[in-house]
Amino acid sequence: MADPEKSIATGIIISNREIFKDHFLMILRVPADFRASVPGQFVMLRREEGDHPFLGRPFSIHSLYSMNGETVMEILYRISGMGTALIARLTADDRVTILGPLGRGFDVPVGKKKIVLVAGGMGIAPLFYLAEYCLEERRGELGETVLYFGAQSSHHLFGLDRLERLCSSLKLSTDDGTFGYHGPVTDLVAGDALSFERNDSTLFACGPYGMIKEMARIAEKFSIPCQVSVEEKMACGIGACLGCAVRASGENTSKRFMRVCKEGPVFDTREIDWNWREG
């Protein structure tokens, strides 16, 4: 069992910089004994000072590494409401309370498999960490890593130089046609899916609900395994409130629920009943 005293960490902000409009990169110093994480896991983050926001907010770990003997975590996020707007105001030396790493991360298969990453907008956050992991921790063990990255507009496709280093190829798209393919990133994936070796490729996707639902369809159509990171509103992040439930797929399981924070946030697309939720 984890040491109860150490299960809640204090993070100290090194920088919290706006990369482009409303999108921020937070770099934090975390305790040296912060538990190792698997890409796809998340943290519940809360400002240490004040009562707003009241609940923590879930964020994927964007990167976790040691630097000059210190453990550093990165969070990539977008302002999407009151909580994230307040988090965006934090500056160097401000403190945050961190629960985590939480949940089930990506399960990278063993063997020379092709790793296909599919990111929609902010969905790049955990996939960047996954690409880092594939290159650094599993060097030489895996097949090539390719990234499909779609976003609203060209300036939303950020970090491309870092990503180019990590992946053998990048396929880009924008909703407004200002860069790469003009249209949803899932079109690009569907177009290439026939060329993926069914038994030797794994898809990893993160993005808006509509996009990951489309990925579930593509995975089924081409019978390629696909792991997705699912988002649902959370209150506790540790499996207690049942706020984050998704319905499990399958016959006779209509009463079976999975908690995004505990059984997820990463699921095989076949585990989920995609018709339960709208949008």
Binding site: D51, P53, F54, L55, M82, G83, E232, K233, M234, A235, C241, L242, G243, C244, A245, V246, R247, S254, K255, F257, W276, R277
Partner: peptide, 22 residues
């Protein structure tokens, strides 16, 4: 018997509190 609960969203933060419809 087991209960399925409500579809999402089930949680919303409000001023100094939260609404739930689990």
């Amino acid at each position: 018997t087991p209960r399925e609960g409500n579809p999402p969203s089930r949680i919303m933060e409000t001023a100094s509190g939260m609404l739930n419809a689990v």
